[in-house]
Design a protein around this nucleic acid. Structure first.
Length: 596
RNA sequence: GGGGGCGUAGCUCAAUUGGUUAGAGUCCCAGACUGUCGAUCUGGAUGUCGCGGGUUCGAGUCCCGUCGCUCCCGCCA
């Protein structure tokens, strides 16, 4: 017999009744009846009830054994009597009567209690991650992650892609996020950087003629965390293709993502293919954001022109000064109490709105604070444009375009949540396309890249001769349920167009030639038109695991302050190590207490 | 860098308007119990109220500072 197990803890049933088996696992729950002792023995695969009878010489020791100890049990599989069958357990029709028990690893009192619902404080969970990961939900999340990644790989190779490795030690890139730096021992004063993404390497692989690249790629960015953004490192399904249009990229990514979401949706619905395409400018008006949650059945619209000529001076004056008005129509809430509207106005103000007007269609009349300023035909236009009728409400907010979008988008999401009208059990996807190539910096007034400087401007070189702010890029995002899964682009493979684009963003020719010399050079020896995308693996797993926090789908995440509480990273290093790296520390000076 | 929330027993949380010896569940310990399955019953132990200062006759509660965690803004080409 195998020294540890003949079966796993999820494997036994009536078929094995009468057999002598061996199981190994953790002591999960104990039920001590004084003269009869039950263990729930747990391993990765399941739970089996072990019965320890008073005749067993190890009975006393088993009574006092701590939960989470690891034991090996040898015993006979007994069918349970009908009244003692546990239908909640896959192995609930049988139990194992312990004959011999080996105490492989006796556990001390655990700082986390694993047999209950409480997860405990997150810093304890992260410090004792090996305990926390034993929980069923964490086992499921982490195995789901593994299964999703395996499926992604299979689907990508099925589309003719090959997986490549690219360097982890590379050099700092002048654009983008803050880098993680690694000092060089052989080159005093010089540093490697961890890649923020394998962006340039994958483009070089296209120049090298490999045609279709993918990688489950680790990416490192030294930026602050969010609930859906782990500090330090994260993984992307990094994809690049040669001789493709935007639609070719979409076709592959749609097939892979749709496939993987259907495979792991666990009963939830997934949008049919093809996914909706929404131009950036339309998304900003209809949803107030470039990552719309399409599960919320509210569509905003621009109603500035109507208010420009209206008698409502607060709005018409603002519109004359460049402000816009957004209408937020909501079905069937005319009957909500006054307090509902007051609270929403309060919320709007708390996120920076100057106010929030509204009209209520009720009992054939139009009511609300601004109704008296609007003529009947104006009300009719609003009613038609917003598609509302009796019982419905339209909110209005007026501000500069950026603020109006942001605030009305936030209100849309808040209404969705508060009214509980967000569709459940569905994954709603869309592509957001036609991002602007450039934007104006609010403070300096400078033209700058709004997203990726290496994207191809639509219209090519000619388009760059006109108004830069009117230039769109072959730049796209894929969004699921309000989560941005990925950005991608058709790349700019022409040195001439690239130099021109950078020039518009205020970079001198020589500067660009110097910073990106290898890329420009590569493009000067025959570069295929190419493009790609890089969906975030952690976020895909998060959506499919129905997790609200990205740390729930990462085995060993760092906390919000970018510390690994289990490993104690980042940690100090010895003076010898520093000397080898030619580094002298320059710690922040702690202010001395003031003399009195 | 900025803003919000939280911080009371190992864990989850309570403590009235500032007022007696800071409570409950759970965990833990001891005892009882041969059919439980988050076993049950009885008893017991457990506190730097995050830390420092201030106001007050009196502070877990109010004020100031600080630390930690978390969510958000900035940031994330």
């Amino acid at each position: 017999m195998h020294p540890y197990r003949t079966h796993t803890c999820g494997a036994l049933g009536k078929d094995q009744a009468g057999e002598t088996v061996r199981l190994s696992g953790w002591v999960f729950r104990k039920r001590d009846h004084g003269s009869l002792l039950f263990y729930d023995l747990r391993d990765h695969y399941g739970i089996t009830q072990v019965v320890i009878q008073p005749e067993n010489p190890l009975f006393d020791k088993c009574q006092h054994l701590k939960q989470e100890s690891v034991i090996t049990v040898t015993g006979r599989v007994e069918p349970r009597s009908p009244e003692t069958v546990n239908t909640k357990l896959a192995t609930g029709e049988i139990e194992v009567i312990a004959e011999d028990i080996v105490f492989e690893s006796v556990a001390a009192q655990t700082p986390l209690y694993l047999a209950g619902d409480d997860e405990g404080p997150e810093d304890l969970r992260l410090t004792y991650r090996y305990l926390d990961l034993r929980r069923d939900t964490m086992q499921r999340n982490i195995t789901l992650r593994s299964d999703i990644i395996a499926s992604l790989r299979q689907r990508m190779t099925g589309h003719g892609f090959r997986e490549f490795q690219t360097p982890i030690l590379t050099c700092s890139s002048p654009e983008g996020a803050r880098d993680y730096l690694v000092p060089s021992r052989l080159h005093p004063g010089k540093f490697y950087a961890l890649p923020q993404a394998p962006q340039l390497f994958k483009q070089i692989l296209m120049v090298a003629g490999f045609d279709r690249y993918f990688q489950i790629a680790p990416c490192f960015r030294d930026e602050d965390a969010r609930a859906d953004r782990s500090p330090g490192e994260f993984y992307q399904l990094d994809v690049e293709m040669s001789f493709v249009t935007q639609e070719d990229v979409f076709a592959v990514v749609e097939d892979v993502l749709h496939g993987v979401f259907c495979e792991f949706a666990n009963g939830k619905r997934v949008d049919e293919l093809p996914f909706r395409r929404i131009p950036y400018s339309e998304a900003m008006v209809k949803y107030g954001t470039d990552k719309p949650d399409l599960r919320i059945p509210i569509e905003l619209s621009d109603i500035s022109e109507l208010f420009r000529t209206s008698d409502f001076k607060a709005f018409s004056g603002a519109v004359a000064n460049g402000a816009v008005v957004r209408a937020i129509p909501v079905k069937a809430i005319a009957g909500k109490p006054r307090s509902f509207f007051d609270r929403l106005v309060e919320y709007a103000q708390s996120i920076g709105a100057k106010g929030l007007a509204y009209l209520v269609w009720s009992d054939g009349a139009v009511k609300g604070p601004i109704a008296k300023f609007l003529k009947p035909d104006e009300l009719e236009v609003i009613k038609t444009q917003c598609g509302v009728g009796d019982g419905d409400v339209v909110f209005f907010m007026c501000d500069a375009p950026d603020a109006a979008n942001r605030i009305s988008g936030d209100i849309r999401v808040k209404l969705g949540r508060d009214l509980e009208i967000i569709e459940q059990d569905v994954f709603r996807f869309c592509w957001v396309v036609d991002f602007p190539m450039f934007e104006r910096d609010e403070e300096t007034g400078q033209i700058q890249f709004s997203h990726n400087p290496f994207s191809m401007p639509q219209g090519g070189l000619e388009a760059l001769d006109g108004d830069p702010l009117a230039v769109k890029a072959f730049q796209y995002d894929i969004v699921c349920n309000g989560t941005e899964l990925s950005s991608g682009a058709i790349r700019n493979h022409s040195p001439e167009i690239m130099l021109k684009a950078f020039e518009l963003a205020g970079y001198k020719r020589e500067e660009v030639e110097e910073k990106f010399s290898f890329l420009l050079n590569a493009f000067r020896y025959g570069a295929p038109p190419h493009g790609g995308i890089a969906p975030g693996v952690d976020r895909i797993v998060m959506l499919l695991a129905d997790a609200t926090n990205i740390r729930e789908v990462i085995a060993f995440p760092m906390n919000q302050r970018a510390q690994d509480l289990m490993m104690n990273a980042p940690g100090e290093v010895s003076e010898k190590q520093l000397r080898e790296l030619h580094i002298r520390l320059r710690k922040p000076v702690t202010p001395e207490p003031e003399a009195t």
